[in-house]
Write a protein that binds this DNA or RNA. Sequence first.
RNA 1: GCCGGGAUAGCACAGUGGUAGUGCAGCUGAUUCGUAAUCAGCAGGUCGAGGGUUCAAAUCCCUUUCCCGGCUCCA
Length: 635
Amino acid sequence: MESIVINIEGEVVDADKDDVLKRLKKVNALALKSAEGHIFDISGDVGGTGELTAVTIDSPEGLAICRHSTSHIMAHAVKDLYPSAKVTIGPSTEDGFYYDFDIDTPFTPDDLSAIEKAMQKIIKRNNPFVRKTMSKADAIELFKAMDEDYKVEIIEAIEADEVSLYEEGGFVDLCRGPHVPSTASVRAFKLLKTAGAYWRGDEKNKMLQRIYGTAFATSEDLKRHIELLEEIKRRDHRRLGRELDLFSMSDDIGAGLILWHPNGAMIRKTIEDFWREEHIKAGYKLLYTPHIARIDLWKKSGHVDFYKDNMYTPMDIDGADYEIKPMNCPFHIAVYKSALRSYRELPIKYAELGTVYRYERSGVLHGLLRVRGFTQDDAHIFCRIDQIESEILDVLDFTLYVLRTFGFEKYDVYLSTRPEKYVGTLDNWEIATEALRKALEKKGLKYETDPGEGVFYGPKIDIKVKDSLNRQWQCSTIQVDFNLPERFDVAYRASDDKDHLPIMIHRALMGSLERFFGILIEHYAGAFPLWLSPVQVSVLTISERQAEFAKETAGVLMKAGLRVETDLGDEKIGYKIRQSSIKKIPYAILIGDKEMESQSLTVRKRNGENISFADINSLLDFLREEIESRRYGHK
RNA sequence: GCCGGGAUAGCACAGUGGUAGUGCAGCUGAUUCGUAAUCAGCAGGUCGAGGGUUCAAAUCCCUUUCCCGGCUCCA
């Protein structure tokens, strides 16, 4: 026998000892992991030699194995209930699993609970997962006999001569494994939703029926996950958008087009003001450009060739075709080219909150996050290739400052390098990619390299922020472009009195204002920091006696530039506070006889906390400080 | 685009062939009250749009618009 040792909770045990299996069972081991990182079934033929470590459900690998096994159990249950269903694939995912079936009638929510019940029975039976191997030819025979066409297709595509199967309680599935020792190893699972999904994700293929589910180590973990899903629902920007009267969409206007209501518009205006001020400080020049342009412009830019699917049909104006803009870049180039540029002027940095329209397939539209008309916080930096690194450094600083201002402290950075299809010289790609890399390193930013994931026209840096629920969102992108300057004959006059080609850097910090707004709503759960809140202060009276004083107080605050709302009605104070809270107004000023007599102010924060101010000026100082710091002080 | 679900009062929803309902919001009146909902009354709907079946359609059928969940984390 080969000498295999197994590491159970730090203790190294010989594999040929009788009690190893018992001990693995005792620590609830689901699988074994070799020193090289290969994971095997406990009962399977592990092969190889060396030290193996017990994998439990507490590790990410263990949880993934459990979820994958749960998907098999689900497939088993589905086959029991709907024998005509054909099984396809059922992997584990980041927070659960799914399995795709080819079945004539799609699943309903009622089906899900029936399947869940059947799964529970299978789990109770404690069927062992048994691994078998057989030749490809035999496996094809087997699955052909079972009428499982998809499995046959999968096996035919496998290169190895031998494939593995897993059997559990009579249900056999082609699977690479590994699996948990037995169905009873699955402790807590739930089926979540059904959906259509194309076979192999290709819309040319047949539409299958997918069931999503999830599994966790304990029912407490599962409960926590379901609570998280509920929290995500509560924060949904579409729901909060209606409740807080921020924006809407209308059937009459069309899909993917956003109406910004006064509250949302006020937030947007505040973001835009901040954005413009900071861009001016950072040396950008602001532009405004048209919404349509002759189609020839888009032919020249290459958008008609590369981007046609996302562009709208041109409109005829006096016999010429005009196109609604999907991008701002050609306009910025036109501004650059409106004069002869000297190398002394570079870098030239143009910024615009440019509204663009892009065709998105109807099925992918989603609230503010995926729309057809949106405003980019776009900028283009024209520079010499030797200026790339320092420009990227500036842009990185700028981006992180802006993201931090909105409370995004955590982010992941990605550097994407040259893809197979590209334009520009290899030399330039090399120089630009290295400049991006150096800038990232100088900033001390940890980043991942995505080889070949760059755009055809140049390498790029993407920054994905993490929101308060730790969800990842891509907003910022910084892209080097060798293509457009050449296509448009962009030039600068260098010291040698000759024309040279500048490099263009495209960058967006927030991406799209619509999308960024949607992310912000969810990030803040609708409770915007004071500087962004559409209404910053509400003034509430205890009785009608204080109406005059309340109006005066509100007037002083409004004159000081604060956004103030009054509630002088005859409702009780509890009702008014509730109204103010529902609107998520950061501060409510409560005015009763006490305050009127002493001229002092009682302020109730959104979180229920009270603060007293001796007079209105001390309150103003307090509010001004919080606004100017753009702090996210309280929820 | 495709699969599935949906659209009924401002909002959340009930109503499966026979007189369109509930709660909240709104309006009116009473009440003048100290930290998340005072009470009563009133009003509000081409049942998303268009067509069809029927004596009769929110309800059944067709078309269409829009919204929602998804559509390779690859045995």
